[in-house]
Simulated scan of single mutants.
Amino acid sequence: MSKKSISQIKEEFEQADAAQLESLYEIYGSDERSGVQKLIGAYRKKAEAMQKERMRLEAMRSFEHKYSDKHGGTYSLICGIDEAGRGPLAGPVVAGAVILPDDCEILYLNDSKKLSPAKRELLYDEIMEKAEAVGVGMASPARIDEINILQATYEAMREAVSNLGVSPQLLLNDAVTIPDVSIPQVPIIKGDAKSVSIAAASIIAKVTRDRLMVQYDEILPGYGFAQHKGYGSKEHIEAIRRLGPTPIHRQTFIKNFLV
């Protein structure tokens, strides 16, 4: 039996890399102390979860690998595109465009709707740090009223691509084909859950828009923009009826609530 304390053994596990962990499992596998066995079990479980997460991410790279010149495809700069805010009653629609390095690892990257706000914030920072290029585009509530939400979304997406700073060779889009774009496009149904590039773009768009709605809440108090982010919650609709619309409300979206 090891004469080391459990706390000393735990420190060894905390400082070990994957290869060293396997050695530690062998060294302490026969230690009969329940604390040591629980420690080994916890680290094995953690390693299995990490392996599962990396396999999930690898599956989410399937579209990038299919088209990448590093994996037998044609393109070197592949851009994911997604939007946030098509449904709210207030605020802009925001599009994100992201080019990630080949085989870039951003653990827990996923469709922004499947992530907590805190997790999205952390991933936003990591995407901004690791991406080759990030672009953001917006269409205002007035523009949405002028040309309709679908055309405004397309406009925001085109702006996001133009703001990348580099010219992508292929666009991976979440479900749509953007008109008036000469770059080849691949629309992917539920792409924000199937492509790392689109997932990254969805997070950039969502966090950018959410931060903006928090700022609007400070400028236009009483509507609860920081909480519902402009979506049609019961509280939001009641505030519109009580206080009237603001300049950031989409008139074509709220007209039925003002009757």
Rank of each mutant, 00 (worst) to 15 (best):
K114M: 09
R54S: 14
D82L: 02
Y43W: 14
A97Y: 08
I40L: 15
E48I: 09
L109D: 00
I40A: 12
K52G: 05
E26C: 08
D102K: 04
I81H: 02
Y75K: 03
R61W: 14
A84H: 00
L57E: 10
A19K: 13
V94P: 02
I78Q: 01
P92T: 03
E26T: 12
L21W: 03
V98E: 04
K38F: 12
M50H: 12
A19Y: 07
R61A: 07
H71V: 06
G73D: 04
G91S: 10
K38M: 14
Y75S: 01
Y75L: 05
H71C: 12
I27L: 13
Y25G: 04
A59P: 05
E64I: 14
D102H: 15
A95Q: 06
I40Y: 09
D31R: 08
D103T: 04
L57A: 09
V98P: 04
S112M: 00
L39H: 06
E53S: 10
E12P: 05
R56L: 13
C79M: 05
L115F: 02
Q37H: 10
D82R: 01
D103C: 05
D103M: 06
K114T: 14
K66T: 14
I99D: 03
V93S: 04
D31M: 08
D82E: 07
A59E: 14
Y25H: 10
D103Q: 12
P92D: 10
S30L: 10
G41L: 13
D103F: 03
G72S: 12
E12D: 15
P101N: 11
